[in-house]
Design a binder for these strands. Sequence first.
DNA 1: GTCTATAACGTGATAGAC
DNA 2: GTCTATCACGTTATAGAC
Lengths: 208, 208
Amino acid sequence: MRASASKKPPGTNTELKIKAAARVVFHKKGYAGTRTRDIATEANMNLALLNYYFKSKKHLFELVMLETVTTFFQTMGFVFNDESTSLEKKIELVAEKYIELIMKEPQLPLFMMSEIRNHGASILEKLPAANMILNSVFIKQFKEAADKGKISEPDPIHFLMNIMGLIVFPFISSPMIKKIGKLNDHQFDSLMLYRKKRIPVWVKAMFK
Amino acid sequence: MRASASKKPPGTNTELKIKAAARVVFHKKGYAGTRTRDIATEANMNLALLNYYFKSKKHLFELVMLETVTTFFQTMGFVFNDESTSLEKKIELVAEKYIELIMKEPQLPLFMMSEIRNHGASILEKLPAANMILNSVFIKQFKEAADKGKISEPDPIHFLMNIMGLIVFPFISSPMIKKIGKLNDHQFDSLMLYRKKRIPVWVKAMFK
DNA sequence: GTCTATAACGTGATAGAC
DNA sequence: GTCTATCACGTTATAGAC
């Protein structure tokens, strides 16, 4: 006999299954490209259940989107606001955490970028991501290093763009990369694991 | 009195207008997100004309897509296969040409990546892009430099990913970048112009 | 070639039985 | 809570007049 163990209501089982299926399909096909029927099928559920648990396709999408974007920025937030790690260590951790995250969910970056372009402002408004980053320990450490002349580029926005570009771009362009490099999925993953170690080295060299 | 100047039939005027409108709308909203009515409106045309000149939405899309992808890779092809320029010069030219191209059409990279993910293989099969790059003068020069120990990373695929990541990622993530950096459109463009000069420097430092 | 009207179909959502 | 059947609507595509 199982006691009702959790403190917060986790939602029913079917509700969770639907949301998980929605995540998979939305991430793969985007909002405009997914059919609610695809989600139902992916969840092994009836179509009517989608509208019973979640009012509409739009509402379900917004739930998924918010969770996805939150996850993405939290990964950065945890690393960037750790008082106990150095600037160099933070670069290593960001590369490590993001490459691990995206290897588990390769669709994530392209999904986020596409849908933010389409549904734009409204998504980003809901998140305190901008200030979370601007006021982070990371930025403070970066500016200190820049003031001491240890960094050749004073604007941290380039630092951020470069790190994230090196991490994220290969995943976004993976079909092309695989084609050009004549790589299968496994070989592509190996390259990304290799980059996990090399990106911090490259970044340090760039800004030295 | 205008002579019929061109050698190849350019298509009628309305046909070209429709295709131009289709490019704009498809680039902005993607295949699944665009309505044929949107294209007709953008072109100031009647909806029926779309199907008269181009058989279907899908067919029109494939024309646009092929032209877009071709343009994208040709930009790389011209630079990479110039026998008269050095490896270093090629890096400068790629950064310059792509940043200029994408500043004129900011939707281009995200459109390409998204639609290649969806309609996948079929698009890339039509292009000899992979071999064009692999057999390029650029790759030859890269390998020569690597053999002489002038480059710390022997696999050119990382070189390519890094250059393109530094160039393309900021555009793909521009809504986030603008939010995080509290930038307006003009300030964002200034950053990209700055990067046009800096990316070659960064790339050289990375692989030295 | 261009237009209006409409057919044919797909999709989001709901009613109502169980 | 779950299912089947169906509605209401938007969208692509075409028929047919001009």
